[in-house]
Design a protein around this nucleic acid. Sequence first.
DNA 1: CGTTCGATTGAGGAAGATCAATTAATGTGG
DNA 2: CCACATTAATTGATCTTCCTCAATCGAACG
Lengths: 250, 250
Amino acid sequence: MQSPAAFDISSARPPAAAHRSSGRKIEDTLALLSEHVELQRRVVHAGDAIYQAGERFGHLYVLNSGFFKIVNLSSDGREQLVSLKLRGDWLGFDGIAEGRYACDAIAMDTGEVWVFPYEALLAACARAPALLSVLHEAMSREITRDRESLMTVCTLPADARVAEFLRQWVERLDQRGMRTDEITLRMTRAEIGNYLGMTLESVSRALSRLARDKVIGFAHKGRRDVQIPDVGALSSFVQRCLAPAPALLQ
Amino acid sequence: MQSPAAFDISSARPPAAAHRSSGRKIEDTLALLSEHVELQRRVVHAGDAIYQAGERFGHLYVLNSGFFKIVNLSSDGREQLVSLKLRGDWLGFDGIAEGRYACDAIAMDTGEVWVFPYEALLAACARAPALLSVLHEAMSREITRDRESLMTVCTLPADARVAEFLRQWVERLDQRGMRTDEITLRMTRAEIGNYLGMTLESVSRALSRLARDKVIGFAHKGRRDVQIPDVGALSSFVQRCLAPAPALLQ
DNA sequence: CGTTCGATTGAGGAAGATCAATTAATGTGG
DNA sequence: CCACATTAATTGATCTTCCTCAATCGAACG
């Protein structure tokens, strides 16, 4: 096991403009796709499945608007929310390897999905190499994002997991130029808990504590709307959870 | 939340011959690569890093022999083993999106890695479309595998996590035609625990219980060698952990 | 306006973490 | 090859966190 901060990884990443550049990238991706590939638009509503586990693979999908959840079902009946998708994200990569989708992709809201026959997409990639780059980048990003999820679940205590979940969600909204000071959770406490490997009660308690500490606020109607006055406060809350001892006097 | 067994996923997958066909596939992949792409062979020893987080992306790697671990380091110093790699597995996909690798890839043993310049690989894919399929299948498989890990960590109690970890490891060895009745763990208890989101003590206790229940056995020298007389016993152990109540009399 | 579903909060218990001591394996220099 | 040092693994005792069970409250909906 190496020492925790063997070298500073942060300096290796494009620091400030990352958000805006990613925001651009999403727009560029959508533009590139609509230019070079024959696409079919499909409007979905909350609860609709764009594909289901076991279904024969044939299409990849790009989310133009709305929100999706990706749900895995094990052979013994365990159900797990493994991923969340926003505008610009791809869906269906899990189907390529086995020729069948491995998960359910369920809309959490009204939205529009662009449908691409996989073969047509590959053909377009042969004509426009930039398209292939976009495709590979999307797959690569999905891999790194999945690993971040694993890291969150494995290394953070319950309260911090919820805070980190909110932080990541806000980050992704920000990358898309969407509101980040007040967000709408499109999932129940049970779904959040399932995604984070904890019970719905623990999620509720964590959110209550975050609200008590003024890290988040609850909006007018319902507890699905969360105010995030300062994203940095979420990060510090996570760090505070990780801190070994409060070290009161010093 | 849906009912657990909404529909039978098992019938949707190719059931029996899956292992052997995957075994073939790995050989085919290696053959295809060595035929169509200029490759550089690199011998590594335990502890060697084939790439490190932050390093500029430029190459993809395929493991021809040996074992690798993929380690993620968060900006605040948390370290997480996020993936394990065996013969035929690809390394480096995480670097494509940002142009820099996001993790460390560390050899756990002596082995040989095939090194491909990404651009050269893409060029070869343009000539041999089968190669592109292989590449996409590998990325797809990595996504589904990562999700399986998340599922294991999120839905299983500690003992079952260890059993499931061994089961998945044996399954992957089997796909490669390697010994599965006696396996060598190339990781410490601490590393296993890190990978599974639990402490090294819990891993040790889980292994002891598995040995007590005759699900596994410890070989002659050292506790790194584990005997797996029956893989099915590992699966049943996982199921037993999930069972709500033993239901003694009935 | 009652019914239903989701969220909150509390009390108690259990799984797993932490702390600590011992044993086993590995490596090192004499 | 052996005594010693070092690292890994095991096991036990205690404590913390989080889960489970239960009651209550609020919001949405027919």
